[in-house]
Amino acid sequence: MALSALLFTGASYAERTIQTPVVVGAGEDNSGEMAGVVNRVSEDGRTVVIDDQLVELAAVVRFNGASWSRERLVKQLDQGLKIYFEVDPEAKGSTLRIISIRSRD
């Protein structure tokens, strides 16, 4: 009976793991921010590719604690930069919109 209980527990754990929602191409830390690496910034400065996922920048983004326009911010987002970022929970559509970014070591 103990063996069947152990097998049941393992199966239910696997089921919970599969159903856990994740953002493809980005990891999360404990604070709820997503983490990733900048792959590319679009020429117009409206979008960024982070871990092969296209994300949009809000018109004004918090960057390392200060408010930046996206036009000014894109000059700071070099390819390979490791960042934590937050997305707008109220954004409509399938593209994520970044509202906050901070550098990570």
Rank of each mutant, 00 (worst) to 15 (best):
M1A: 14
M1L: 14
A2Q: 14
L3C: 09
L3Q: 14
L3G: 08
S4I: 06
S4T: 09
A5P: 00
A5L: 15
L6F: 10
L6I: 13
L7C: 12
L7S: 13
L7Y: 11
T9H: 13
T9Q: 14
T9L: 15
T9K: 15
G10K: 09
A11R: 13
A11I: 15
S12F: 13
Y13A: 15
A14R: 10
A14M: 12
E15M: 14
T17C: 14
T17L: 15
I18N: 05
I18A: 13
I18W: 07
Q19W: 09
Q19A: 14
P21L: 10
P21I: 06
V23F: 13
V24R: 11
A26N: 06
G27L: 04
D29S: 08
N30R: 11
N30S: 14
S31I: 00
S31F: 04
S31R: 06
G32T: 02
G32N: 03
E33G: 03
M34E: 02
A35L: 10
A35Y: 02
G36R: 05
G36D: 00
G36K: 00
V38F: 02
R40Y: 09
S42G: 06
S42T: 10
S42A: 11
S42N: 09
E43Y: 10
G45S: 08
G45M: 10
R46T: 08
R46E: 11
T47D: 10
V48D: 07
V48N: 06
V49M: 14
I50C: 06
I50A: 09
I50P: 00
D51I: 05
D52G: 07
D52F: 12
Q53G: 05
Q53T: 12
Q53M: 12
Q53I: 05
V55C: 13
E56S: 11
E56K: 11
L57S: 04
A58Y: 08
A59P: 01
V61Y: 04
R62P: 00
R62S: 04
F63E: 05
G65M: 05
G65L: 07
A66N: 07
A66E: 10
S67E: 13
W68C: 08
L73G: 08
K75R: 15
K75L: 15
Q76T: 06
Q76K: 15
D78T: 05
G80F: 02
G80Y: 01
L81I: 01
L81E: 02
K82Q: 04
K82V: 02
K82W: 03
K82F: 04
Y84R: 02
Y84N: 02
Y84F: 00
Y84L: 04
Y84W: 03
Y84M: 02
F85Y: 11
F85I: 00
E86N: 04
D88V: 04
D88I: 00
D88C: 04
D88S: 03
D88H: 03
P89T: 01
E90C: 05
A91V: 03
K92W: 06
G93I: 05
G93T: 03
S94L: 08
L96G: 07
I98Q: 03
I98H: 02
S100M: 10
S100E: 13
I101D: 05
I101T: 07
S103H: 04
S103N: 12
S103L: 08
S103V: 05
R104S: 07
R104A: 06
D105P: 12
